[in-house]
């Protein structure tokens, strides 16, 4: 089963169970169904699916308005670049709403994707979910494998309050990853997939598959890393990760974003401050003067070299 078919299956299953729900977005039940993400969605008679006008900022306001009225809302947005059009509603409206102690009676979720395949040109250079979330301390979740999809979609898709969930089109056609789960934080913001003493691997944004590949390569060499994925960009409590770093003193960080303001900076600073690190390897994009031109977003990683560096 592919990542996309599993994600679509869980979304269809979850959405079909909710009455008092409005599922909306541009072309969500037409054409390619957002690359297959929204294919086959159906809702009970009391709920609605709407192919909307092209008005991202207003559509985010529309979702907040529905949730204010007690109606649950899911806005399927093709990609997070479009969130740039919505900052007024994301910041101002959300701040006003959550300042009310009564909170948001309904649920509002923006289900979107981080364009991470590349070749889309300069307009798609915003690919760090955390950048959007830090604007207004918005809860956001990335989903990259069976475990986090199973944990996050049923718990967060329709639940009082507001959040953003982002999927990875780069993974759409790949086989679904099913890593064993060692630990999951109660809020779903941190997943640990392996427990080991040889190094600590932490994956940010949608980079989990890279970290998982490294962990598997290490195991074939008889090495046992701890493997984490940070699924919510802000705010993050690092305690579980720092406990691991305290043991391993070795750190490998993956971040597949192009941001100048990455979430891992804070973790790295704290780890350096608290521990005498023996090794730190950061695998991220090294963008030169061509960062605006269309090119691949795939990280090219020599895992054997990384392992050699760690050891």
């Amino acid at each position: 089963m592919t990542y996309l078919s599993f994600l679509n299956c869980i979304l269809r299953k979850e959405i079909a169970t909710h009455t008092n729900l409005v599922v909306f977005g541009q072309n969500i039940s037409a054409g390619s169904y957002l690359g297959g993400l929204t294919a086959g969605l159906s809702v009970p008679p009391e709920s609605r699916i709407i192919n909307t006008i092209n008005a991202e900022n207003s559509l985010v306001g529309f979702g907040f308005g529905l949730a204010l009225s007690g109606t649950n809302a899911i806005f399927f947005m093709r990609q997070i670049d479009f969130l740039l059009l919505t900052t007024d509603q994301l910041v101002n409206t959300y701040n006003i709403i959550r300042n009310n102690p009564a909170g948001l009676p309904g649920s509002f979720t923006i289900m979107t994707t981080v364009i991470d395949q590349g070749y889309e040109g300069p307009q798609s250079s915003s690919n760090n979910l955390g950048d959007f979330c830090s604007l207004a301390r918005i809860d956001a979740f990335t989903v990259t494998n069976k475990r986090d999809i199973e944990a996050i979609i049923p718990a967060q898709l329709v639940s009082p309050g507001f959040r953003i969930i982002a999927a990875s089109p780069r993974l759409y056609k790949t086989d679904l990853l099913e890593p064993p789960l060692a630990y999951r934080s109660p809020t779903g913001n941190l997943f640990q997939y392996q427990e080991g003493n040889d190094t600590t691997i932490i994956c940010f944004n949608l980079s989990f598959p890279y970290g998982y590949a490294l962990a598997q390569a290490m195991q074939t060499k008889g090495l046992h890393p701890s493997l984490f994925s940070v699924n919510i960009p802000v705010p993050i409590k690092w305690n579980v990760i720092l406990e691991s770093v305290k043991k391993t003193k070795k750190l490998v960080i993956f971040d597949d974003s192009k941001s100048m303001n990455c979430s891992y900076y804070a973790l790295l600073a704290e780890a350096r401050l608290r521990f005498n690190l023996q090794k730190e390897i950061i695998i991220t994009r090294h963008l030169g003067s061509d960062w605006l031109t269309p090119n691949s977003d795939q990280l090219e990683i020599d895992y054997q070299k990384v392992i050699k560096d760690i050891v």
């Binding site: 306001g61 204010l68 007690g70 109606t71």
Partner: peptide, 19 residues
């Protein structure tokens, strides 16, 4: 914020329709 309230109101209004 000028006009920020319009889409929020449309959403809540549609809540009347849904319910």
């Amino acid at each position: 914020i000028l006009a920020n309230q319009f889409p929020v109101a449309v959403g809540s209004a549609f809540g009347f329709t849904v319910s």
